[in-house]
Computed example of a mutant assay.
Amino acid sequence: MPMTLQVLYPVSDDTTFDDAYYQSSHMDLVSEHMGAHIQSQVVTKGLAGGPDTPPGFHAIATFVFADQAALDATLASAGPVLADLPNFTNVTPTMLIGQTYD
């Protein structure tokens, strides 16, 4: 069964997020260290939380994997990606691991 990993970067009054660095350098690290196991990915930049509402997240990255083994392999190789977080944000991201519905 396909598995997903979502990485959510919540907004609060004191959070910072360097979108340019994230798009270029950080996502290159994701591709280098985790890309072999990722079936597809999409990153959503937070623009709004609804009409006239600021976004609740700087960004949400969604990665899809063929199965649990591919997800496990990705998580095992994520060290350099996680170590890069302080280079673009002071947010501790929230992760959601799940299954997709067919």
Results as ranks from 00 to 15, higher is better:
Pro2His: 12
Pro2Val: 11
Pro2Gln: 15
Gln6Pro: 04
Leu8Gly: 02
Tyr9Ala: 04
Ser12Arg: 11
Thr16Cys: 09
Thr16Asn: 10
Asp18Glu: 10
Asp19Thr: 13
Ala20Thr: 12
Gln23Lys: 13
His26Gly: 06
Asp28Gln: 14
Asp28Leu: 05
Asp28Tyr: 07
Leu29Pro: 01
Met34Glu: 03
Gly35Cys: 04
Gln41Trp: 14
Thr44Met: 15
Gly46Asn: 09
Leu47Pro: 01
Ala48Gly: 10
Gly49Ile: 08
Gly49Pro: 09
Gly49Arg: 07
Gly50Ala: 10
Thr53His: 08
Thr53Met: 14
Pro54Gly: 09
Gly56Phe: 06
Gly56Arg: 08
His58Cys: 03
Ala61Thr: 10
Val64Asp: 02
Ala66Leu: 08
Gln68Asn: 07
Ala70Ser: 15
Ala70Gly: 09
Leu71Tyr: 05
Asp72Thr: 04
Asp72Glu: 11
Ala73Gln: 07
Ala73Ser: 08
Thr74Asn: 12
Ala76Thr: 00
Ala76Gly: 03
Ser77Tyr: 00
Gly79Lys: 00
Pro80Thr: 01
Val81Lys: 07
Leu82His: 08
Ala83Ile: 01
Pro86Ala: 03
Asn87Trp: 03
Phe88Gly: 06
Thr92Gly: 06
Thr94Val: 14
Gly98Ser: 11
Gly98Thr: 12
Gln99Leu: 09
Asp102Pro: 12
